[in-house]
Amino acid sequence: MSESIAKQTSPHVQPPPGRRPPFLVRHAKWVFIGPAVIVMILIMIYPLGYTLWMGFHEWFASSVVPPKFVGLDNYVRIFTDDARFWDAFWRTVYFTVLAISIQTVLGVGIALIFNRNFLGKGLVRTLFLFPMVATPVAIALVWMMMYNPVLGVLRYFLDIVGLPPVEWVSNRLLVIPALVIVDTWQWTPLITLMTLAGLSALPVEPYEAAVIDGASGWQILRYVTLPLLRPVIVVAVLFRSIDAIKTFDIIYVMTQGGPAFASETLNIYIFQTGFNYFHLGYASSLLIVLFIIVMSVSVLLIRFRRVDW
């Protein structure tokens, strides 16, 4: 591509014989991709490389001791001597799997409903997208107030129904499900939105064939719509999974990983290690591990998209 551009541009600015063409023209292909490459290096490759480099150091930023090179020590510690990391890892898996399963089922279901015609469809569709647009921190604060077991509005409704107060985010067992509810409330619309786009692009022929063959509504959904939608759903799940693994804002605002680390996911743990405890080297090595996890999940899901069911 850039090569051909270079070839095309040079005849127009043909220099007089005996003089070399101008620098920019001679290196046109580099000139054109240059800005993109520089931006990529500055905002992606350099920070990643620097994080990798810091991950090989012991660097406690609260003291004047300079960073010390420790090779793979940080990684050895992560995998052999850091129970808090593994707790956070499994918690992240739990949160992600729970959140994504619920959101996918709800999101696709709601998209199928929204794909039909009913009165006020446009309005309902627009309203449904609102949570996605709102600021996560604001949402988290509002949910925090609603969850408050003494003063919150959920307590009020439980009282009306005659149920005892629920501790929601103050209970070690309930805290992750409670956070999943918030995440689901906010992000189900994203899956709906993507599925709706997929639905509107589906071909008509398979449906006609299915109707002629006498398929029931359920059979059409199961054997025609969902398989056709699969690539779209997988992309939606991929986006949401990457986001869910890295969820930070709502957890940090609502619980800071508490009570007693019961909602501390990997991202929260890394944040605490880096910016609250100031172990910058160790936090960097944790980040590299998180990066590898996110990459692996993405690769797996993309593979899954290609395989037949």
């Binding site: 408050n148 077991p149 003494v150 003063l151 107060p165 501790e167 929601w168 985010v169 103050s170 209970n171 619980t255 508490g258 009570p259 007693a260």
Partner: peptide, 18 residues
């Protein structure tokens, strides 16, 4: 009150203030 394990001073003082 229930939910003490998530009470910082904002929540705790709020319960007294309410």
């Amino acid at each position: 009150p229930p939910g003490s394990t998530n009470n910082h001073w904002y929540e705790a003082s709020g319960i007294l203030a309410q």
